[in-house]
């Protein structure tokens, strides 16, 4: 009782009330807490960005970041005139676009379906099994993909009765990448949708049932509208990583023969920067990739803001 009284006696000052100094002093504990993430972000995210300048310089390790010569946009123009430039852009965009196209609706459909399951035990087992693959590392997943697709005794070839080496077929690469991605992460994606669905007021369902709404009508008019805002949020999140297709997985599944579809910017940056030690060039390519990504993120966020007002960030 006395605790609630003291809390009422010293209310947290309202934002916008009093001078800035007074507000800072009144809520100094909150600002002290905020200081930790802000300082960490500045130290680990913003300060290292001064290294981006080597994208505009001819970086020599002996002369350092600051001492190397300025070359302007030379690295960028070299990238734009690289023979594989068009192919890389196309592959990066298509790979992430198709991943989003197939990978985005599947968790929603799964969640809507599993929400209708009435046997609690079966529901729990299904959910646990579905998100188990999420915890397997990319390296192991790629090993599994190789075993399953192996031309001699791989499961897929045995079922189809063929002996195709899928990893050397450039036409199969996107399907392999996206299907295995869905297999791994769809179960993890449904968690947030299931949580939203379980919070829906059951009286809505009862009222709909009394009014004679069928199962599909209940899903269409109760479940989906409740999920819309979280769906838009997830879409913005995935748009943030649209140009960053998982480097590891593409690199591990890439063979010389499927490069026509598996050559993406992230792998190119690694090959040029680490394997060939062209630091300035790979920094320029990476910077270009990031700039495109930011533009896409802002565009998707603007579009999403029109759909639902409360989920726009910028």
């Amino acid at each position: 009782m006395s605790r609630s009284k003291t809390a009422a006696a010293r209310p947290v000052s309202q934002p916008g009330g009093g001078s800035l100094k007074k507000r800072l002093l009144d809520n100094w504990q909150l600002y002290a807490m905020l200081l930790v993430p802000v300082v960490l972000t500045i130290i680990y995210k913003y300060i290292p960005m001064y290294g981006i300048q080597i994208a505009f310089r001819d970086y020599k390790a002996s002369r350092g970041f600051m001492g190397s010569e300025w070359v302007g946009l030379e690295w960028f123009s070299r990238f734009f005139s690289a023979p594989t430039f068009g192919r890389m852009i196309k592959n990066t965009v298509l790979l992430s676009f198709y991943s989003l196209l197939w990978g985005f609706p599947i968790p929603i459909i799964l969640a809507l379906m599993m929400n209708q399951l009435r046997f609690q035990k079966f529901k729990r087992v299904t959910q646990t099994v579905l998100y188990a693959p999420h915890f397997i590392s990319t390296m192991v997943i790629c090993g599994m993909i190789r075993i399953f697709l192996s031309p001699s005794g791989g499961l897929i070839n045995l079922i189809a009765g063929t002996s195709v080496d899928f990893l050397t077929e450039s036409g199969a690469f996107r399907t392999i990448y996206i299907a295995s991605g869905i297999w791994q992460d769809a179960g993890w994606g449904i968690i947030v949708y299931m949580a939203t669905l379980s919070n829906i007021d059951t009286s809505l369902y009862e009222a709909a049932k009394v009014d004679g709404a069928s199962l599909f009508q209940r899903i269409l008019h109760i479940d989906i509208p409740e999920l819309t805002s979280i769906m838009v949020l997830n879409l913005i999140m995935s748009a943030g990583g649209l140009m960053n297709v998982g480097f590891e997985k593409v690199w591990l599944l890439q063979t010389d023969l499927n490069k026509a579809t598996s050559d993406v910017i992230a792998v190119y940056v690694y090959q040029q920067g680490i394997e060939n030690a062209k630091y300035s060039y790979s920094t320029a390519v990476g910077l270009f990739n990031t700039v495109i990504n930011i533009i896409l993120l802002i565009a998707v966020n603007k579009i999403a803001g029109r759909i639902s007002e409360d989920t726009s960030f910028i």
């Binding site: 799964l110 379906m113 599993m114 209708q116 399951l117 046997f119 079966f122 087992v125 299904t126 099994v129 579905l130 188990a132 693959p133 599994m144 399953f148 297999w183 179960g187």
Partner: peptide, 15 residues
């Protein structure tokens, strides 16, 4: 629903 979920369960669990 149970049949569909069982098929999905099998696809995910078999690998």
């Amino acid at each position: 629903l149970v049949v569909i979920c069982t098929i999905i369960l099998f696809i995910v669990a078999y690998p």
